[in-house]
């Protein structure tokens, strides 16, 4: 039987539901942990960040207006689509993170299950985090969490798929949209994830994924005045003073940088990552006959 030449994939960005190349035309080489060439990834630019933020802003109100039940089903749908592509994700995680097939498969299983876990929160976190407040007067008084808006996220550098999902899912489940910078040196599973997102009923622009140099893109995202909040998880262990100074320009909500990349093997202890990107709204109304 004749050998067949593989058809290799061109990895591009994921912006507004489409897969553009970087407008800059730049790419950078992605190698496995042993230095063997895997692919050329798009190297996003300042303009790509701006385009992604525009797409995210446009998509956010509609996504937030979807019912919680609907958002939950969309997140669950992502898990369904990923499940059908387990082999592909396992192969990419294995070469990106230098894991055995068996360990890579476990990571992919956890990643799929993480979507399911967050999908279930969509119509529950408001019940957990909301409150009926017993004010001292004849008033109805209710507090509810609402999405902050457009969130910028720096995804973990080591955990290329599960870590990315642990950042993305809690941001979008409440109705935020997100512009995420993927792991710089392990971006390939993120773009394959984008293909799953694009075919899973998630409206275009709710999740935007940029591959490229974290140090180049992070300040652009942190300083963008139409970004409402920023997740610095991908800067674990690094000094983020400059990014936080930029974020203060429009009082961005900042999810602080951890000392080390968090272990995301298991789901977190509660909906904290969801609530980090929510605002509390309190509504008053008088009671009377």
């Amino acid at each position: 039987m004749a050998t067949r030449l593989d058809v290799n994939k061109t990895y591009k960005l994921y912006v507004g539901g489409a897969f553009p190349r970087s407008e800059s035309g730049r790419t950078y080489e992605i190698a496995d942990t042993k230095g063997r060439f895997l692919a050329n990834a798009a190297q996003a630019s300042r303009k790509d960040v701006r385009d992604a933020v525009t797409a995210a802003r446009k998509a956010q109100p509609g996504w937030a207006a979807a019912t919680a039940y609907n958002r939950g089903q969309v997140l669950y749908r992502v898990a369904e689509i990923m499940e059908g592509r387990r082999e592909q994700f396992t192969g990419e995680v294995a070469v990106s993170e230098d894991l055995s097939s068996r360990n890579a498969a476990a990571v992919v299983d956890a990643a799929i299950d993480r979507w399911v876990w967050y999908a279930g929160w969509s119509d529950k976190f408001a019940q957990v985090a909301g409150a009926a407040n017993p004010v001292a007067g004849p008033y109805f008084n209710l507090s509810v969490p609402e999405p902050t808006g457009v969130v910028g996220a720096l995804a973990p550098q080591s955990s290329s798929l599960l870590g990315l999902i642990e950042v993305l899912a809690p941001i979008i489940v409440s109705g935020n949209s997100v512009v995420a910078v993927t792991s710089q040196d392990r971006p390939l599973p993120a773009i394959t994830l984008a293909e799953a997102l694009a075919t899973s009923d998630l409206p275009g622009g709710v999740v935007n994924l940029l591959t490229g140099q974290t140090d180049e893109l992070a300040p652009i995202l942190a300083g963008h005045l139409d970004v409402d909040a920023i997740d610095l998880t991908g800067m674990a262990g690094r000094d983020t003073t400059d990014l936080e100074v930029l974020a203060a320009e429009n009082l961005k909500r900042v999810l602080a940088t951890p000392d080390t990349e968090p272990d995301v093997t298991d789901p977190p202890a509660g909906p904290r990552r969801i609530l980090a990107f929510c605002e509390t709204k309190t509504v008053w109304h008088p009671k009377g006959r």
Partner: peptide
């Protein structure tokens, strides 16, 4: 897009009721 919405009333405050802003009105309650 506001942290407190008063409907058919205004400027009511109570220790049990969270107060604080969206956007450039700050963060925390």
């Amino acid at each position: 897009r506001a942290g407190v919405v008063w409907a058919n009333t205004f400027n009511r405050f109570d220790p049990t009721s969270p107060f604080g802003g969206y956007k450039e009105s700050g963060f925390g309650r």
